[in-house]
Design a protein around this nucleic acid. Structure first.
Lengths: 145, 145
DNA sequence: TGTTGTTAGTTACAAAATCAACCGTTAACA
DNA sequence: TGTTAACGGTTGATTTTGTAACTAACAACA
């Protein structure tokens, strides 16, 4: 027997957010998968290194909130495919500095361009005001424990 | 060498949406997992049946955009745990009508309440205007192929 | 120093998601 | 009707994720 009140799944923020996130990730996902055989974790690591330069896995974890095992495996695969290199830290030999190779930077630049234009095709569906508010609200929701 | 332009990961809608979705799902996930040992796919099926009553797996797929194997397995588990029952369709014996049991409805009512109040604690972080625009924008993003 | 605790990152194993192939049933239509 | 295609749903193999336990390195401090 269905409930009659107004609380629909479409009104439940976590659900709505998930639907929007999945739907809006699809086309971009296709690109990094087809062009570079990457997974979501991998393009995220690639983007972090492309945007911020030399980082350790720890740094990436702090910025992205990805779990360290995800990062570890993404780094492994990116290294195997020569998108990045590792360099041990002299002072603290537990850490490794990660850096994109030429190939990595090329992939990053390519995907960065795709992302940028894809983001625009998404925001076309929204008014300027809507877009502004949306981004602000998402930031608030994203960074609260 | 990091790029200098303004296209940050935090400005990329699919990324932002994912971050917000993950973060905002966490606490609720904990509830249905702890109380009923359910997975995300399972509470989704539960909610669909709770909200809309008797449905086939196909219906749920159309509404939720979950892949049919996910639904099939979620239904199996929910049936095993006596949250729902299946009834074959007389006219088309490929289909099965799914319906919550008493236990299923009880779980649904419980989680429905949790979801409703959780949704409110989330929207407290936003102004009324922000919330309105956010929901509208998310709906637009969620339902475009 | 030596012991204990913590940290960065990896690995092993279980749980879950994905993908393709599959089964039985219905639809299309020659 | 008979044949082929499509559909609803399930299953199995492979991939990916999640969880815990682990290794090696460092830190704190007796």
């Amino acid at each position: 027997m269905p409930q009659k009140d107004d609380f629909d799944l479409q009104n439940f923020l976590p659900y709505l957010l998930n639907q929007a996130a999945e739907e809006s990730s699809l086309a971009f996902q296709q690109v990094y998968k087809d062009r570079y055989g990457m997974l979501r974790t991998e393009w995220r690591v690639l983007f972090h290194l492309g945007l911020y330069g030399r980082l350790t896995a720890k740094d990436i974890g702090a910025r992205s909130k990805m779990h360290k095992t995800k990062i570890s495996r993404a780094v492994q695969r990116l290294e195997e495919r020569r998108f990045l290199t590792r360099a041990p830290d002299d002072a603290d030999r537990r850490q490794e500095h990660l850096e994109l190779t030429g190939q990595g930077r090329a992939a990053y630049r390519d995907l960065h361009g795709v992302a940028e234009s894809y983001d625009q095709t998404l925001s076309v569906k929204l008014s300027a005001e809507e877009e502004r508010v949306l981004r602000g609200a998402l930031r608030k929701l994203a960074r609260m424990g």
